[in-house]
Design a protein around this nucleic acid. Sequence first.
DNA 1: AACCCGGGGGA
DNA 2: TCCCCAGGGTT
Length: 392
Amino acid sequence: MPRKPAPRAVPPVPDDIRVPPDFGARVVDWQRLHGRHDLPWQNTRDPYRIWLSEIMLQQTQVSTVIEYFQRFVSQLPTVQALAAAPADQVMALWAGLGYYSRARNLHRCAMQVVSAHGGEFPSDPAVLATLPGIGRSTAAAIAAFSAGVRSPILDGNVKRVFARFFGMHGHPGERAVETRMWQLAEAALPAPGPRQAEDMIAYTQGLMDLGATVCSRGKPTCLMDAGACPLSADCVARRDGLTATLPTPKPRAAIPERSTVMLLVRREREVLLRLRPDSGVWGGLWSLPEMPVDTVPFDAEAAEEAALDYARAFGRPARATMTGELTHVFTHFRLLIRAIRVDVSTDPGSLMVQDSAAEAAQRWLSLDDLDALGTPAPVRRLLEDQARGGLF
DNA sequence: AACCCGGGGGA
DNA sequence: TCCCCAGGGTT
């Protein structure tokens, strides 16, 4: 049986972290007045129910979890019953919740609690986190709710509250941001004291409730009513008008890359430009003629051959040379532009007959007149580079 | 249609 | 050690 390693110990909190000394107390007081108190897994210290609810709540909303939770505990009321249940029954009770590895880990965890811990859940978060399906945050939540242990949680709700309250930029999924948030979570815990167990239960639940209700993603209540949030008075996001932009969203997935070959058809000191259709990229701008790239990987020699062929429409081509490449980034894709220079000489005999519409969409331009036409920025750069290189 | 979510497993 | 995935729900 592969053993799950215990998570690294929390690094010391750096000196530059400043948390108001009454942060925890404000969350605790708010929770007692305005938080949720009647969820089916509250008002108990039964670690089995607390653990089960935390696993169900990992990727699923409270409103969805409630009925699954009720059905689950009525059929399997104890960790011993769960450990002894057939996998089919466990999976059937989970069906519809999604993320089914959670159910398999749940079952394995119950068996380990019975076999390795005498059927009693540990109360030490570091030990809890060695069990399948229990990570650092879930371990802390179980320890806090079942035994009043002073240990920080950091789930999606808490990350949102922290990002706003402390004005932290950067996606919370980034390592550096998450590390800092764990340090903040450690520093923000209510002070240890005689009421620690009750406070930790209220504090842990309070952070979750605050993130789920007041400090929500879409329409945080403080935008309408600052008094609704116990942290609004010194919330950095609120002070700086960043409530709607924090936390920083996940960076968009890598955008696809396309490629094209542009032709620098040169005739003496002029280059051939082409008017792009009104719709699409660079609509209505004057750009260079493009050749479809159909060789993957790109084959420079073949492209030069094709360029010679292509340029016969504009004169007698002498030679074609790869002459540069650049990448242009759009919002939704990157365009790799390769440029091939084709020198042509005027030869009326070789000119193909063109209709007037095609004629109107192309023109020869001296590089000195570049300012006269609207040209896409990368094309402009390409032409200027050519001019600087003395090629025109 | 994009974005969200804790932990595990594979790169 | 880092990145990516899952799968149902919300926005």
